[in-house]
């Protein structure tokens, strides 16, 4: 498709004119979402409450307008999300009239799995990866739409937009289907499923630029504010409730911090920042010399840890 076409600009929801490259990304994502609705029997949109999920939800509303979302929204709740995230989730679901499914791995809860007691690797495996597989199996979803982007991580850079999973939700990097043009092979045999990533070609900065241009609401944790934090393993961890035991010599102090990515609060490192508006955030990102996932403790186990988790069925 040529960029030279002088098409009428989209008036974005916030009233501004979307830059050309964001219009192209938006249109691509909308086409992907529509393809999922048209081709799968029982799709679901994975909602992780983060900024990428907010963008995904916004794009889905655009894709099907004036119809409502033709699929439910699933949140896998590890019970360790920031309280503000849960409040934001429930408010969003109410406001948009979403069909929200919340799933928690009750077996894991019964076993007392937690990021504090069990460590990040086991917690992630049981409360995220296993929980996700349970939820997909329970509802018989054949396609799960996620907000992952290729610029996040090296193994993601190799993943397809329509990412085929064999029975048991397994990702096999060597067996990926070639993806030509925008012709997605959506065919599945019984037991197989698809993960779909409409934001594959977006970068972190694109996401923020789009949030700003479209006036999309995100969890306030992305904006700098004085918050109680402790310095642990080289990052600031927020003391979000009294389940985080303080180690000897540790005490919570008030620092002006914000989060670049959100997950379970004991595993999400905050950064010291004064960025209190979206404009501040994009300016900070343009100056930044560290990557987005640096604050994520679960990715740092070793070089190929994301790839291994994905092979097991992680998003």
């Amino acid at each position: 498709m040529s960029e030279g076409i002088l098409a009428p600009a989209t008036r974005s929801s916030a009233g501004a004119v979307l830059p050309l490259h964001l219009r192209r990304l938006e249109a691509e994502s909308i086409a992907i979402l529509r393809e999922v609705a048209a081709e799968f029997r029982n799709p679901v949109l994975m909602y992780s409450i983060g900024k990428d999920s907010s963008v995904l939800l916004h794009l889905a509303r655009k894709a099907f307008y004036p119809s409502k979302l033709p699929f439910p929204v699933l949140h896998v709740d590890t019970t360790w999300k920031f309280r503000e995230m849960i409040a934001f989730r429930d408010a969003t679901a109410r406001q948009l009239g979403l069909e929200l499914i919340v799933h928690t791995n009750q077996e894991g809860v019964a076993r007392g799995i937690s990021p504090v007691a069990s460590g990040s690797a086991l917690h992630t495996e049981i409360m995220k990866t296993e929980a996700l597989k349970q939820a997909l199996d329970k509802h018989g979803f054949d396609a799960a739409i996620g907000g992952a982007r290729r610029d996040e991580e090296k193994s993601r850079a190799k993943e397809r937009i329509f990412s085929f999973r064999s029975a048991g939700h397994v990702w096999e990097p060597r067996r990926q289907r070639p993806e030509l043009w925008n012709l997605y092979n959506t065919r599945l045999a019984p037991g197989e499923s698809m993960r779909v990533f409409p934001l594959s070609n977006w970068t972190e900065l694109d996401v923020w630029d789009y949030i700003e241009a479209e006036g999309i609401e995100v969890v306030p944790l992305y904006f700098a504010k004085p918050r109680p934090v402790v310095w642990r393993d080289g990052v600031w961890i927020m003391v979000d409730d009294d389940r985080l035991p303080l180690l000897p010599g540790e005490s919570a102090e008030l620092r002006t911090v914000r989060f670049r990515t959100l997950g379970c609060y004991p595993l999400s490192g905050a950064i010291e920042s004064d960025a209190a508006t979206i404009g501040d955030i994009t300016a900070e990102l343009r100056r930044s010399r560290t990557s987005e996932r640096q604050g994520r403790l679960i990715d740092n186990d070793d070089t190929a840890s994301m790839e291994r988790k994905k092979k097991q069925g992680y998003f």
Partner: peptide, 9 residues
Amino acid sequence: RARAAAGDA
């Protein structure tokens, strides 16, 4: 919209 052109969803 007043017009839709190649690339527009």
